[in-house]
Simulated assay, not measured.
Amino acid sequence: MNILQALFFPPEQPGGVSSMVPYIQEAFAGKGWEMELFSLPKRVRLKGTEEVRFETFDWTAFAGAPIVDKYVQTYKDYVWWTRLRLRKTYDLIHAHHPIAGLAMKQLFPDTPVLITLHSSFERELALNGKISPGGPEERFLTSLYGELEHRLDGIVTVSQSFKTYLSSFVRNPEAISVIPNGFDERRFKPVPHENVVPQLITVCRLVPAKGIDTLLAACSELKKRGYPFVLHLIGDGPIREELEQMAVSLNIYEETIFYGYMLHPEEFMPFFDIFVLPSRAESFGSVFAEAALCCLALVGTDVGGVAEQIDNDENGLLVPVGDPEALANALEKVMLDPSYRYNLARSAWLKAKSAYSLQRVIGQLQMLYGSLGAGGK
């Protein structure tokens, strides 16, 4: 049985789909399945010229909006690259991005095409101030969900909350499957350590949607209360300079380390104490599961997939979005009581091992592939 995993860009990043799919490929190979990975190289730009048509809406009504035009051109590029590179047929194609899913169905109309929707591009753009709610870009991107439902053979998403979000854009939301992301415990595992000063860590792209401004404000409050700490920020992005200036103005620059992009933060993470990320939205929040597998105490916001991973006061703490004082109070509670912190981390580790193991994902995917006609061996 030959299955193609169709990604968007190459799986170079750690975390989420980028790290999960190659391990899925490895696991299925061990079961005797044939599985290939395909993606669009980042250097491929402005090559595609085929006309783009969707069956459920006229995308040209949104033409002229830069984000829409770039999205459609990327779709053309994906089709061009796929025609150039793929010469064989497959028993099933599993796409991990709307462009990949629709392009594959266009070029392989007789092959079952399944898609996993890992995140909402329109929500990310809106939270990062790139588009206006209700504008042409948002309407174009949300229209794609109906197109995916109409043309593809199955839709999967990564959390119940994201399924609920999608339900207003499709005709039959009950047909959407939920398979939370899974993680290889060989990569994410605890390391015994003791830190005299609490070590806080976050891993994310530095964009407004991740709420790092809230985190810095909370850490400033912690310093005013007289608590020592070190905050480790792993990641890069367009507001890094702004955040560094904010750390200076809040008088916590000496307590804060901006690392920039790091290819394998999982090698770093187990040596810290508390993982904190006050996101304004998360479809799943893969990095929380990764931190849990490293046995870190978790502090997050009561949004999306994060709230599905964290049971407040049992395996982590949840706080409202955009509330620095509430976040400071939660961090204070975890920092001051090592036994409480350990119990939270231990509970998070146990839940992550059972609910977010890679083997669980493999089993669920194997059943799903079988339902679409890919029986495997």
Rank of each mutant, 00 (worst) to 15 (best):
N128M: 02
L107F: 10
V334F: 00
H97P: 00
E266Q: 12
M1W: 12
A328M: 04
K105E: 01
T301I: 00
E290A: 08
Y227T: 13
T164L: 10
R360T: 03
K42C: 14
D337A: 09
E51W: 08
N2A: 14
G363Q: 01
R83M: 00
L107C: 12
Y261E: 10
P66M: 06
A103K: 01
L144G: 06
A326M: 10
Y75S: 04
Y71M: 03
Q309G: 12
P66L: 05
I310E: 04
P98F: 01
L243T: 04
S357W: 00
T56D: 07
W81H: 10
N128W: 00
E55A: 12
R225G: 11
E332M: 03
E254V: 13
E26R: 15
F8Y: 12
R240H: 05
A330E: 07
V203A: 01
Q13R: 12
E254G: 13
L4V: 05
A348E: 04
F9P: 00
V203T: 00
I310C: 05
V21C: 07
L148M: 11
N172Y: 15
A103I: 02
E242V: 13
E241W: 15
P14K: 12
G375P: 09
A100C: 12
I274E: 02
L141P: 05
A247S: 12
V303A: 10
S167E: 02
V17W: 03
G322P: 06
D337G: 04
K333Q: 10
D110I: 10
L92D: 06
H96E: 03
V306S: 06
Q160L: 14
F275Y: 10
K223G: 09
L40W: 04
V178S: 01
D58H: 11
Y369Q: 02
Y356R: 13
K224F: 08
L358N: 07
I234G: 03
E124S: 07
D91P: 09
E147D: 02
L200T: 01
H193C: 05
I201Q: 01
V21A: 07
F57V: 07
D311Y: 13
V321Y: 00
I67H: 13
G30W: 12
A330T: 05
G15V: 14
D236V: 02
M1N: 14
G211D: 02
A95D: 05
D337E: 11
M20F: 01
P10Y: 08
S119M: 15
K353R: 15
M262K: 14
N128L: 07
G134Q: 06
G154W: 11
L141K: 09
P270V: 12
E122N: 04
L141V: 05
V113C: 00
R186L: 12
L37E: 04
G304T: 04
A352M: 04
L148K: 00
F57G: 08
G300Y: 02
E290V: 06
N181S: 09
Q13D: 15
P238S: 07
G48W: 00
G129N: 03
K353Y: 08
N172Q: 15
H96N: 08
T60G: 06
R240Q: 10
K223R: 11
C295H: 15
G101F: 02
A281C: 14
K47T: 15
I24E: 11
